[in-house]
């Protein structure tokens, strides 16, 4: 995670939300489970403790109701996505073409095509997955 933030800090041109408090994270987790999504992975929770979502050059990692940026809301994005019917998945971010999702069944971070829902890439670690979607 430290290495990820070192990489992210290299790009000044990004919107980065302030860290979220634990209560908000718990509420969002509950809501995700209610909506039949997988719960957030441990690595991503750590990420949320450091920053509440990032958007950079058309790509975004979602946060929990980030200020002034409804489209970056994790719960909202999961409700709206065509992948909402898959209980093993939770969407964590997106770019123009793909979603970044966590597959709780396979314990993998997946890059999934927005339209045909094909899994394009899989990563076991969060760092390369986030860097892939943000194109850094």
């Amino acid at each position: 995670m430290k290495r990820l933030f070192e990489n992210l800090n290299k790009i000044s041109s990004r919107h980065q939300g302030k860290p979220v408090n634990v209560q908000k994270i718990i509420l969002a987790q509950k809501e995700l489970v209610q909506n039949r999504n997988a719960s957030l992975p441990h690595d991503f929770l750590e990420f949320l403790h450091r920053c509440n979502g990032i958007s950079y050059d058309g790509a975004a990692i979602f946060g929990i109701a980030p200020e002034g940026r409804i489209f970056l809301d994790l719960v909202q994005a999961n409700k709206m996505s065509p992948l909402s019917g898959f209980p093993e998945l939770v969407i964590l971010g997106c770019d123009e073409f793909d979603y970044l999702a966590y597959n709780a069944k396979r314990h993998q971070y997946q890059i999934i095509d927005k339209e045909d829902s094909e899994v394009l890439e899989e990563y076991s670690d969060i760092e390369p997955a986030i860097l892939h979607i943000l194109k850094i």
Partner: peptide, 12 residues
Amino acid sequence: RRVEKLDGAFPD
């Protein structure tokens, strides 16, 4: 609570 959160997300 969710509505409250979203209101905060769109302050303007």
